[in-house]
């Protein structure tokens, strides 16, 4: 696996001033290699969202450096940062965040619209991605005509349309039932296997378990990094470990079991 870095955080600090200064992130350093699958976990207020916003080029750090796609986010002008966000970052949100009056195809093509890519090319690319997420026959449907799982597939296709350095998913399965969740996470695995860099923010263990490693945040700092990399030393060795880790998360039973198995099958 190529270890080129997709996103790097170097001693990043983000301070909000709401009366007293609040350190949402307090000296975080993290490298996200290209092609990796990272999960970020942590309780509310641990700095997950802030990290998300920084990596997503939506925000700039108070101190330290955030490098996305080789470019320092903090030093860019707003316009450049927006451009970087459009081309190098793909967002998948908990609430899908599709444009309500645009159909599936147009939603997928939207990021390319803002990059000035012409209509025919956009539509071809969007159609192709919709096929890949299994919605080739739903291209003309509006979001409210699609199920939650289908909407999230559209969102994933949209995130991938500009071939970004990283896909940022914020609780991607938070609004989905367990079956649909598994489908979406399988799809993530599929794209990851095909080389997409994934960064998933979640508070659910079984979702995080799909990743190569889990970054645990607490009070704005990295508490620990849990390495789940199985690619090198074989799946069997890791599986039991994951099983025990999963147990505290209550219902992480058969649903997580089977997709995980499939993912490993894919990666091997």
């Amino acid at each position: 696996m190529a270890r080129e870095t997709a996103v790097a955080l170097e001693n990043v600090r983000k301070t909000y001033r709401i009366g007293e200064p609040v350190h949402a992130l307090d000296g975080v350093s993290l490298a996200v290699p290209r092609g990796s699958y990272t999960a970020i976990m942590g309780p509310s207020g641990s700095g997950k969202s802030t990290l998300m916003n920084l990596v997503g080029c939506l925000d700039t750090p108070t101190a330290g450096e955030v490098v996305v796609g080789g470019r320092p986010v903090g030093e860019l002008e707003d316009r450049e940062r927006t451009r970087l966000r459009g081309t190098e970052v793909g967002f998948v949100f908990q609430t899908f965040n599709l444009m309500p009056r645009l159909n599936a195809l147009e939603n997928v093509a939207l990021p390319q619209l803002f990059q000035g890519i012409d209509r025919a090319e956009r539509r071809e690319r969007a159609r192709d991605l919709l096929e890949r997420v299994g919605l080739g026959d739903r291209a003309e449907h509006l979001p409210n005509e699609l199920s939650g799982g289908q909407r999230q597939r559209v969102a994933l296709a949209r995130a991938l349309v500009n071939d970004p350095a990283i896909v940022l998913a914020d609780e991607p399965s938070g609004n989905l039932d367990t079956d649909t969740e598994a489908d979406i996470l399988d799809l993530f695995d599929e794209f990851h296997a095909a080389g997409t860099t994934m960064l998933v923010v979640t508070h659910e263990r079984h979702v995080a378990d799909r990743a190569d490693r889990i970054v645990h945040l607490l009070d704005g700092t990295i508490e620990r990094i849990e390495d789940l990399e199985r690619g090198n030393d074989g799946g069997s060795a890791v599986d039991p470990g994951r099983g025990t880790e999963t147990t505290p998360d209550a219902d992480a039973d058969s649903e997580t079991g089977s997709p995980t198995g499939r993912r490993e099958a894919d990666s091997e």
Partner: peptide, 16 residues
């Protein structure tokens, strides 16, 4: 507002 947020998240410039 939310749609504006979405557009900006996927790369819409202010002028767009």
């Amino acid at each position: 507002t939310r749609e504006i947020g979405i557009m900006k998240a996927v790369g819409a410039q202010n002028r767009d």
